[in-house]
């Protein structure tokens, strides 16, 4: 049995070869992770003991003092960033059309599945009038 190997655009290879490559990949990843942990552990062991200072960082008051004192500008910037991210995520995840419309032709041929039986008309997802006008323009 042969399967397409879409990650590299190579011609079909055997399923056994694919499984062997997967096994090699797992072992290589395990070796990389273990070596990384060993290097980090050796570095931690080689570092002189940290001189711990007395303090009460777990106190909520000290956290709020830092958050609304010297760190208030990054705190505000973070709020703006989260708002932008929320809007961006909503725009990115928003569906334009459903299956059967022209937009699905953008799907890479290696990735597309057969369309469902029957020619479904393009359906508009409820959204802004601007988006509805754009979809209307695409579909005539």
């Amino acid at each position: 049995m042969s399967l397409p190997y879409p990650s590299m655009g190579l011609p079909s290879i055997g399923l056994r070869t694919l499984r062997r490559r997967r096994g090699i990949q797992v072992w290589l990843a395990a070796i990389v992770a273990i070596v990384l942990f060993a290097v980090l552990a050796l570095a931690i062991r080689a570092t002189p003991a940290w001189i711990e200072q007395a303090g009460t960082p777990n106190d909520v008051e000290s956290i709020t003092d830092a958050l609304f004192g010297p760190q208030v500008i990054p705190f505000e910037v973070l709020g703006v960033l989260l708002t932008a991210v929320m809007i961006g995520a909503l725009v990115t995840a928003r569906p334009l059309t459903v299956h059967g419309s022209e937009e699905t032709s953008l799907v890479h041929p290696n990735l597309s599945l057969p369309a469902p039986a029957g020619d479904l008309p393009a359906q508009e997802i409820p959204g802004s009038p601007l988006m509805a006008a754009a979809i209307e323009e695409v579909h005539g």
């Binding site: 940290w50 711990e52 200072q53 960082p57 000290s62 956290i63 830092a66």
Partner: peptide, 9 residues
């Protein structure tokens, strides 16, 4: 370890 809250922030 440092006794400051900046790291937690």
């Amino acid at each position: 370890a440092n006794g400051k809250a900046d790291g937690i922030v």
